[in-house]
Design a protein around this nucleic acid. Structure first.
Length: 541
DNA sequence: AATGGCGCCAACCGCGTCTTT
DNA sequence: GAAAGACGCGGTTGGCGCCAT
């Protein structure tokens, strides 16, 4: 990471700290009284609403934020033009939408872009150009505006320095793909020739369509490859099904999308199909896929998926996944806000004991978790998608995080799509005293209860359940006044309902994946955040 | 201490697209 | 099918803080 970038990141990090300490969402102007339209110059010359109300422009105040949050809480996202009518907020719908999208959404990730995210943006920009919204969709918690600002600043800086916008390291070289495929084959087949062949075929097709399943090293970050997921205890019928599904998606997306088709098709489909597999609808899926595999609704599937056994890596018996966390536990780390009291220079070397010592034993988690710097398993974008899914789906597990230790089933995770995924950011970065903690707990409870009607309830960590543990004593101290936090403002009964945001997430993901999965099936907030791999960084030298 | 350059960020604006009537 | 409204996206601007001079 170049020095300038670190410097920028440092400043942004400091900004972030300032934000946290201030307790407000952003740098607010000298408090603009919003009670009277006559006392602020920003009113003059502003457009008017239908009833001749002069609309305010300029920075938002906390009061306005609270009004908007309250509105969204009651009515959900959308109908932005009705905000002014219903709340008296003198802001145009556009402004409200922007404010919500860029600052008030609970799931927003505050703080600096991580080096990984920055790399990802660079990669994405190299592929799709100024498609900020698309990039934002793949960087959960990040807004298009944020990404755009980053890029513009970066561009300006690099142009001034006479440096190229796209470093060589961001250009994917696939020279080792063949070897990687061979390697993966070896890892996957384990005597299963059929598996190997189809997998190889799948990988080849991915590459044929431009997707590099074994993305080469970007910088010094290593990520779990798709193969990890597939190697971690998925029996072949499921594996093949997922692969086929992903492949179809990839093909479609290649045609309809210019951007990272395989990355979506593979991982996204895998994840969504994971859900499908465990939601009891897989049989139809297999039929629709034209696969002859029978679907076994055996709850043991969970065991099959479980990889929490130390040293267990599913089908991989040999040279797969060079490094592993001991005892099959994985530390989940968010790239930002995890080491709030560390300076940026230490960012890459986050201490062994992170603020959130979340020990997860979950199938997806470990399965996706290569957790090693395997040179053939570096896929920055892939990893960020996983990270993105983590973020979105981790919302589903806020309740688990809010307790010291709890056990959840795979189905719990897969089915807990109604848990407000917007809460995790606060849950992850702040305290458990948030009103959200309670609401999510309650919600999770409801979800869990309803789930019990559908799925056999696992009883202990040893029978295939995933155990999510969090050392709450090491949680990041709450530095932000709860009453100023969006979740607090939203209140404990916050409910996204059928918010557009959720729909957008689903839709965009669906669009990128293909069209044979309904948004409900592929919604980002439906996958297990804790089941995703963390990003492992190798300290810069 | 003053000043200017620079980076960051929030917000506005215009336009295109989508949805509704 | 057309018009109007709503929404989303990308470009741009302006304010603020930091830092070097």
């Amino acid at each position: 990471m170049e020095r300038e970038s670190i410097g920028s990141a440092r400043r942004r990090f400091l900004n972030m700290c300032a934000v946290k300490n201030d307790g407000d969402t952003e740098r607010l102007p000298k408090e603009q009284p919003d009670s009277s339209p006559n006392d602020e110059g920003s009113w003059s010359g502003s457009p008017t609403a239908g009833e001749g109300v002069v609309l305010k422009k300029g920075p938002w105040t906390s009061t306005e934020d609270a009004i908007l949050i309250d509105f969204v809480k009651k009515h959900g996202e959308g109908n932005w033009n009705s905000v002014q009518r219903n709340t008296g907020l003198r802001r145009c719908g556009k402004s409200c939408r922007l404010r919500w999208a860029n600052h008030l959404r609970p799931e927003l990730k505050k703080g600096a872009l991580t080096p990984e995210e920055e790399e990802c943006i660079i990669q994405m920009h190299a592929k799709i150009g100024n498609k900020w919204a698309q990039m934002a969709a793949l960087l959960p918690g990040r807004t298009d505006n944020e990404i755009k600002n980053f890029w513009n600043t970066r561009t300006k800086r690099l142009q001034r320095a006479g440096l190229p916008l796209y470093p060589a390291s961001s250009i994917c070289s696939g020279d080792s793909n063949e070897n990687q495929l061979i390697q993966i084959d070896g890892e996957f087949c384990n005597g299963d020739i059929e598996n190997s062949g189809v997998l190889h075929e799948a990988m080849n097709e991915m590459q044929e369509f431009g997707f590099d399943p074994c993305k080469t090293t970007i910088g010094q970050v290593s990520y779990a490859p798709l193969s990890d997921l597939l190697s971690q205890g998925l029996e072949w019928p499921y594996t093949r099904s997922l692969l086929n599904q992903g492949l179809n998606d990839i093909k479609r997306n290649i045609v309809s999308e210019t951007f990272l088709p395989g990355y979506h098709g593979s991982l996204g489909s895998v994840v969504s199909n994971f859900k499908e597999l465990t939601s009891g609808h897989s049989e139809s899926m297999y039929r629709n896929l034209g696969l002859g595999f029978s679907y076994d609704a055996d709850p043991d599937m969970k065991n099959l998926l479980s990889c929490s056994i130390p040293g267990s890596h599913g089908l991989s018996h040999g040279n797969f996944s060079a490094s592993r966390h001991s005892a099959g536990t994985v530390k989940l780390e968010l790239p930002s806000l995890q080491c709030p009291d560390t300076n940026y220079s230490n960012w890459m070397t986050c201490p062994d004991t992170p603020p959130y010592n979340i020990l997860v034993q979950s199938p997806g988690n470990v399965s996706l978790m290569s957790d090693c710097a395997s040179p053939r398993s570096n896929g920055l974008l892939e990893a960020l998608v996983q990270e993105s899914q983590k973020i979105n789906c981790g919302k589903n597990q806020s309740s688990e995080k809010s307790s010291c230790s709890s056990a959840i089933t795979l189905s719990d995770i897969m089915e807990s799509t109604t848990v407000n995924f917007c809460t995790a950011e606060w849950e992850e970065t702040c305290d458990q005293r948030s009103p959200f903690s309670q609401s999510v707990d309650e919600h999770a409870q409801i979800t869990s209860n309803s789930l019990e009607e559908l799925t056999p309830k696992a009883t202990s960590g040893s029978d295939g359940k995933m155990v999510v543990e969090q050392d709450s004593t090491t949680s990041t101290p709450d530095t932000q006044p709860g009453f100023l936090r969006p979740d607090a403002l939203l209140g404990s009964n916050w409910n996204l309902r059928d918010s557009r945001r959720t729909k957008e997430n689903s839709d965009s993901f669906c669009a990128l994946q293909g069209d044979n999965l309904s948004p409900a099936e592929v919604s980002l907030d439906s996958c297990p955040w804790n089941s995703m791999p963390s990003i492992h960084q190798v300290p810069e030298h």
